[in-house]
């Protein structure tokens, strides 16, 4: 279900303190999200590619992720060049393509890919369990950390339930077609999965009570910031400042 293909490596980025990586990725995402010039995102795209190379991420899984995100970006290229008001760059039949539309689509593409690269290299290189613990250490509210960890834990269980139901349907000769019977059956399967998830939530509450849960959340792992990580974080911070400067100077 969630395979975590990038978490298994052994590069510096894999071994680095997940707190540092989370902070850095979040900072970069914020800076890039609000930048309005193309220079900062373009720089971040290059650095991001460098980070991905440094982390030696498995190629196939990496390109599949990039393809998925750019599937969404492609939609922007379908609409933005035509719908953004501005000077006409050229005409496609009856449609006007504006230069403002083109540059907006380009800007969003750059930002999206730059943020994606940063997250793949920095966040996806830690497994979900350590990310949850790191979030807790960074004083993210305990409820959010629980939601994150439990989602990861139970999405497998809920998926197994779904597969059992689908199998049960197949065993009795069900084949998905484009007809009312199929839609009714799938709706019913979905309802069963939801009911199962509700039951699961209640059982989880009970299981927590049984083990003495009292509302406060502590985690086992303690992280240590080594010299390498401190340097890495300082470099990352300097990099974020550079991105901001590039943005401000080009404004």
């Amino acid at each position: 279900m969630i395979e975590e293909p990038f978490a298994g490596g052994d590069s510096f980025l894999h071994r680095a303190d997940p707190r540092a990586k989370l902070v850095l990725a979040a900072t970069l995402a914020c800076v890039l999200a609000v930048s309005s010039g193309w220079q900062a995102p373009a720089l971040a795209l290059c650095i991001g590619a460098g980070l991905v190379l440094w982390a030696r991420l498995p190629g196939r899984a990496f390109w599949r992720r990039m393809l998925t995100i750019n599937g969404f970006v492609a939609f922007l290229w379908v609409f933005l060049p035509f719908s953004t008001p501005g000077e006409t760059a050229f005409r496609l039949g009856p449609l006007e393509v504006t230069s403002q539309g083109l540059s907006l689509a380009l800007l969003i593409s750059l930002k999206t890919n730059a943020i994606m690269l940063a997250f793949l290299a920095l966040v996806a290189t830690s497994d979900a369990a350590s990310l949850g613990q790191a979030m807790h250490r960074l004083r993210v509210p305990a409820k959010l950390v629980f939601l994150f960890l439990f989602t990861y834990r139970f999405i497998h269980v809920i998926n197994a339930e779904r597969q059992r139901l689908v199998q049960a349907a197949r065993l009795r000769g069900f084949k998905a077609r484009s007809n009312a019977h199929t839609y009714r059956t799938l709706a019913s399967l979905l309802a069963m999965v939801l009911v199962g998830a509700m039951r699961r939530a209640e059982m989880t509450r009970r299981a927590m009570l049984l083990r003495g849960f009292n509302g406060s959340f502590t985690t086992l792992r303690t992280f240590r910031m080594g010299l390498g990580e401190r340097l890495f974080l300082a470099t990352g911070a300097a990099y974020a400042v550079v991105l901001i400067l590039v943005e401000v100077l080009n404004a």
Binding site: A128, A129, G132, Q133, L149, F150, R153, R200, M203
Partner: peptide, 11 residues
């Protein structure tokens, strides 16, 4: 499966 709450065994 009702009783295991965390992604890793030790946690």
């Amino acid at each position: 499966d009702d009783q295991i709450l965390f992604p890793t065994v030790l946690d």
